[in-house]
Design a binder for these strands. Structure first.
Lengths: 187, 187
DNA sequence: TTAACTGTACCGGCTGGACGGTTTACAGTA
DNA sequence: TACTGTAAACCGTCCAGCCGGTACAGTTAA
């Protein structure tokens, strides 16, 4: 098992968290192996022991983001008692736009991986393809539901890049309206 | 005057176009001064004459993107005869999601600038702040209109990163639905 | 004994940027 | 028209530093 005597949890996880922090705090351009290992409290050798190359680190980062998002959506789904047929769509709204800290860095991570190698977005592309496929096969108003999902993406992206200008009330209005649109998509 | 004997138009513009091409074709990570100067048919020294640092090049790229977008929206606005009060909002849909090649590289450029230095997004942040401000002062349904704008961002982002999975018909449906939502936002 | 590291030293390639020199455009002048 | 001075525009080379990655000998805990 991994040694967890110097930090919290296994080193591999600590490295990924540190990488996220580095991206958010100093930008994707300075996401270097040295910076990550230092932020994780791990030697460079130790970092390369877990991730044999920078590419593999970024790949794991992208995968972790997808997993986190699906986790957040699943949690939100369970919290919705009466969702009707719009339950899944509403879970996306609440899950992605909710307050879970795991998704705070999403856009930055997406950015970092994309900036280094567009091929690393494959895992995300797959996820979107699947989502689109499922949507087109369900009995939902495809365009309406897609707009809800796209608006979620847009808002999340703005917030991750810190270029959003909505006040707290405005954001709440928007989320509420998205929930309403989600319901409408099934009528 | 600038020498334009080796290419089309003044060198400065050629450099910016070349930078866009480089980002789109080989990725933001390989947007180097050498690559840009080579793609522009200009020496590295010549490149650095026009843009004294890489940062200034990226800044100009971001500015160019904002200008292009406003240009596309303005053009779209003029093409809408009967827009009613939703004219501006509809112009955003058609302008940003239209076929103008100037915006094809938008996401990639945004990506490149953000990846190198988050501070370079300032010009975009200002634009969004202004847009949000104007929206909140108009008599539009704020949440609905915001969702339209956010969905535009989301779709543009997916397409720029080439992670979109919509078919041509699906995309058309979505754009049409966005236009409908834009109208509804004023009723 | 083995897996999971640490620490240090090192390397080759790439990158941003500096710099000195060269060409081009053009205004002034006679 | 021819000449000339000057400044803008541009070229090509060089360099210091950083970054990803390697190598390897030691250390710790199970």
């Amino acid at each position: 098992m991994a040694a967890d005597h110097t930090g919290i949890g296994p080193a591999r996880e600590r490295v990924l968290e540190a990488a996220e922090r580095v991206v958010v705090e100093v930008g994707a351009a300075r996401l270097t192996l040295d910076a990550v290992s230092q932020a994780a409290g791990v030697s460079k050798g130790g970092l390369l022991y877990h991730f044999p190359s920078k590419e593999s680190l970024l790949g794991a980062l992208a995968q972790r983001y997808v997993d986190s998002m699906q986790g957040c959506i699943a949690t939100a789904r369970d919290a919705i008692e009466d969702g009707g047929s719009a339950r899944d769509l509403k879970a996306c709204v609440l899950g992605v736009l909710g307050s879970d800290p795991r998704l705070k860095a999403m856009g930055a991570v997406l950015l970092a991986t994309a900036a280094n190698d567009l091929a690393l977005l494959e895992v995300i592309r797959e996820r979107i393809t699947q989502q689109t496929q499922e949507l087109s096969e369900s009995d939902v108003d495809f365009a309406r539901a897609s707009i809800v999902l796209l608006a979620i993406d847009g808002l999340k992206m703005r917030e991750s890049l810190r270029i959003s200008a909505f006040s707290a009330e405005q954001r709440e209005q928007i989320v509420n309206e998205l929930m309403k649109l989600a319901d409408e998509a099934y009528r």
